[in-house]
Computed example of a mutant assay.
Amino acid sequence: MFRAHQHNRRCPAHHPVPTRIPILPYRRLRSRRPRRPPTAAHRPMSENSTPTTPIHTWIGVVTTILAPTTLITALCYYFGYIYTRKKLAFFGVDCDALGFTSSDYVRGSVTVLYAPLLFLLVGWFAAVWVGDYARRSIRTGQRPHLVRTIGRTALAVGTAFMLTGIVGVVAAGYTASLALISWVFSPIALGVGGLLAVGGYWALTISTTTPSTHDTTPTARVSQVLVISVIVLALFSVMHSFASWLGDNDAQTIAHNLWAKESVVSVVRAERLDVPANLIAETLVETPPGQPPLFRYECFRTLVARSDLWVLVPAKWSTDNGYAVILPADSSLVSLSRSTDFKDIAEAHTDIVTTPWQCPERAPIP
């Protein structure tokens, strides 16, 4: 039996020896259907890549340019200087002779920059939302020919506007009659043309490329930088014109309200002033014996009041008969008084040219 058993073990034909079959891990069967290319929402991103949109790109450019505090302070100083200089020049006073500090000009720029900055922020907010809505509408692929036509038209019109603005700036240097075009029409044409060119190029780029192939070429980047520079320069020129206009307009308002102003100024000093008798009333102040005489001057209105000097103009000031005086604060005794009677008399005598007195406070109060 032992041999038979050994014989059987050696004969696999009669008694096959079982072998172990390795068990493979279970694998999930995949579908044989062709896979669709991943969309922009499901496209895998690397760890260092971040999604960028045109809106984020423009916000980054603007914050990079406007973020430095030094640049903002310099702009406030410049526009405050233009506003102050234009306002005082209307009365024949040079602001450089008054020794204003940088803080004075920066405070003066608040009047100039408030309305433009509010308009700019509202416009930027509207542009962000309109641009995002337009981008999503263009991505849907509806009416691609219309979108491309609008983009080409905006690009062509924007280029024409920028060329017109450049021609206006160049021509104004040779012809004095075109100075108004240079300061009003040319900046607006350059700014609007730049915005149309940027919007048209952006619409063409979005409508003709897919999200996976949307990449800005170096030529396009240079063009965008140049167009942004043109827009910034045009905005700077518009702000310069606005500051000049606002200073002149505020000066006219101040001059119109001098006669009916309730607060009046009187100056008492030992030295006699060379003032016009039809504008300023001069009287002699009684002093004790042995002291030099003092002179009182009335009918002044305050234009600039500082700790070291005063800039005064008469109540009857006009462009044809203007007068202003700069007094050091330590050489004169300046007194201020306020009364509603002065305003009532001024409103009753609006014709300041034919009145027999230099100012309402000199009139007999009933």
Rank of each mutant, 00 (worst) to 15 (best):
G80L: 03
P356L: 07
D96C: 01
H7C: 07
K86F: 03
P68S: 13
Q358E: 11
Y323P: 02
T50A: 14
I181W: 11
R143N: 15
A156C: 11
D320V: 07
T159H: 01
W202M: 12
L312Y: 05
R269I: 10
F242S: 02
I352Y: 05
H240A: 09
A179P: 06
D308R: 09
S331E: 12
V325K: 06
G173I: 00
V225L: 12
V230T: 07
L155Q: 12
G108F: 00
S102P: 07
S237V: 00
L279V: 12
R143M: 10
T52H: 09
D250T: 09
E298A: 08
K86W: 02
P51W: 11
C11E: 06
G168V: 01
S102C: 09
T164I: 01
G200C: 09
T287G: 08
C95H: 09
T39F: 09
V157F: 03
A277C: 05
Y77N: 03
I65F: 15
L327Y: 06
A197Q: 10
R32V: 12
Y133Q: 15
Q6A: 12
W317T: 02
T283A: 06
P25G: 11
Y114K: 02
S177V: 04
E286I: 15
E347Q: 14
A203S: 11
I55V: 13
R362N: 12
S237C: 04
Y26Q: 08
I55G: 11
D320F: 04
D344I: 05
A197N: 02
S31M: 00
A305D: 11
G99V: 10
P360H: 03
T70Y: 14
A197P: 04
I280S: 03
P187A: 06
S46Q: 03
Q291P: 05
S207Q: 12
S212I: 08
S229T: 12
H349C: 11
S109Q: 04
P293L: 15
R30Y: 08
P366G: 10
T140Y: 10
P366N: 15
A115H: 07
A270I: 04
F125S: 14
D94A: 14
T355G: 06
A189T: 01
V264P: 00
L118E: 10
S266W: 06
G123V: 04
L24C: 02
S339D: 14
W310I: 01
A127F: 09
V264S: 01
D344A: 09
S137T: 12
S186L: 00
T287M: 15
H42V: 13
V93H: 10
V304I: 13
I345N: 05
M45W: 14
T287V: 15
L118V: 13
R30N: 09
R33H: 04
A277G: 14
L273Q: 15
L146F: 01
K87W: 00
S109R: 00
V130L: 14
G141Q: 15
C11A: 04
H15C: 12
